[in-house]
């Protein structure tokens, strides 16, 4: 049932966006553990990444998402937990014993790959990309052998902008860049800057307004 729902959502995503993956310096086929980090403008972001990954990768890839959104309502929690097996993070209020980064590291140890959005929240501004939160750096430090893959999602913010319920059909691209790892002597700011630049470099038609 969850599998069929996943298929239905993937089909719908393709019907609306004709999404096309682009692999720039990244080979998706080897079954390796990875952390995909991406720009975040829409609740559909991880669905789009998920639906262009090869099926085997899909099974082990878990999106990291906000619990406040994905626990609200039966349908959302079903899609979040059962279909996508999302790793839900409490963003507000009570701090639990484990930090979000610890939870992610634990999921990696269990063999999962992750989809994270280092901006920390949906970018609803006119800025191309918000500054990265430090979580991605701490995760990279905790698990230095894991590959971090930048993934640029193009156009989905126009398909489903803030506050809209009906997705508008526009063509989307999901661009995967070369995997990167944190270097031994790299500071937090350096790594955040380097990973952010790697993501920005993937924008197609970046000269267009």
């Amino acid at each position: 049932m969850a599998f069929a729902c996943g298929r239905a959502i993937t089909f719908f995503a393709h019907a609306v966006t004709a999404v096309r993956p682009m692999w720039l310096g990244f080979d998706p086929k080897p079954l390796k553990q990875r952390v995909y980090f991406s720009n975040h403008a829409s609740h559909g972001d991880f669905i789009l990444i998920w639906s262009v990954l090869p099926p085997r990768q899909r099974q082990v890839t878990r999106p990291v998402a906000g619990a406040d959104y994905w626990r609200k309502g039966k349908l959302r929690s079903y899609i979040g937990s059962d279909v996508f097996n999302a790793l839900l993070i409490e963003r507000s209020g009570a701090q639990s014993a484990e930090t979000p980064v610890d939870l992610m590291a634990k999921a990696l140890d269990e063999g999962a790959s992750l989809i994270i959005f280092p901006e920390g929240t949906r970018n609803l501004t006119d800025a191309t990309l918000l500054p990265f939160k430090s979580g991605i750096f701490h995760l990279a430090r905790l698990r230095p052998q894991t590959e971090f893959v930048p993934v640029w999602i193009e156009n989905l913010n126009r398909v489903l902008p803030k506050g809209a319920f009906i997705p508008v059909p526009l063509m989307c691209e999901v661009v995967f860049g070369a995997p990167m790892k944190v270097q031994d002597d790299e500071t937090k700011d350096e790594f955040l800057m380097r990973s952010r630049d790697a993501l920005l470099a993937l924008r197609p038609r970046s000269e267009a307004s």
Partner: peptide, 19 residues
């Protein structure tokens, strides 16, 4: 239409018009 609208300057302000 999907191909054409993708290349236009339509912004989120035009979401309803596009729909």
């Amino acid at each position: 239409l999907r191909e054409f609208m993708t290349l236009t300057n339509a912004t989120r302000a035009d979401h309803n018009s596009l729909a």
